[in-house]
Simulated scan of single mutants.
Amino acid sequence: MLIATTAAQPKLIGREAVKAALKAVKGQPVDKVVEVPAVPLSRDDPKTLADYASSLKNVN
């Protein structure tokens, strides 16, 4: 039985990728690894699940 999982943050991942690309174009050093925190999701926290689902609908 799955009790909890994590989810990615596509908007934040994209934002960090663009920041790194702009640095690279300017000849600035770019980190080899950029950590983006995962969102913990649990059936015990329906508000976080609803907020995450809503945030995916607004990715643009």
Rank of each mutant, 00 (worst) to 15 (best):
M1A: 15
L2S: 11
I3R: 13
A4T: 11
A4Y: 07
T5G: 11
T5R: 06
T5E: 05
T5W: 07
A7E: 05
A7K: 03
A7C: 08
A8K: 15
A8N: 14
A8Y: 15
A8P: 02
A8D: 14
Q9L: 08
Q9G: 04
Q9C: 08
Q9E: 11
P10V: 03
P10K: 03
P10H: 07
K11F: 05
K11G: 06
K11L: 12
I13L: 05
I13N: 01
G14H: 01
R15L: 05
E16R: 04
E16L: 00
V18P: 00
V18W: 02
V18D: 00
V18C: 06
K19Q: 10
A20H: 00
A21H: 09
A21E: 05
L22D: 10
L22Y: 13
K23F: 13
A24W: 08
V25P: 01
K26R: 15
K26V: 07
G27M: 06
G27C: 08
Q28C: 08
Q28H: 15
P29E: 09
D31A: 15
D31H: 14
K32W: 09
K32Q: 13
V33F: 14
V34T: 10
V34Q: 01
V34Y: 00
V34G: 00
E35D: 12
V36W: 00
P37V: 01
P37E: 04
P37G: 03
A38K: 09
A38T: 08
V39A: 01
P40S: 05
L41I: 03
L41P: 00
S42H: 06
R43F: 15
D44H: 12
D45I: 03
D45A: 13
P46H: 06
P46W: 03
K47T: 06
K47Y: 06
T48I: 04
T48D: 02
L49T: 02
L49I: 09
L49R: 02
A50F: 14
A50S: 13
D51P: 05
D51M: 11
D51I: 05
Y52K: 04
Y52Q: 01
A53S: 10
A53H: 09
A53E: 11
A53N: 11
S54D: 08
S54R: 12
S54T: 05
S55H: 02
S55C: 02
L56W: 11
K57Q: 12
N58E: 09
N58A: 10
V59P: 03
N60P: 11
N60A: 15
N60Y: 12
N60Q: 12
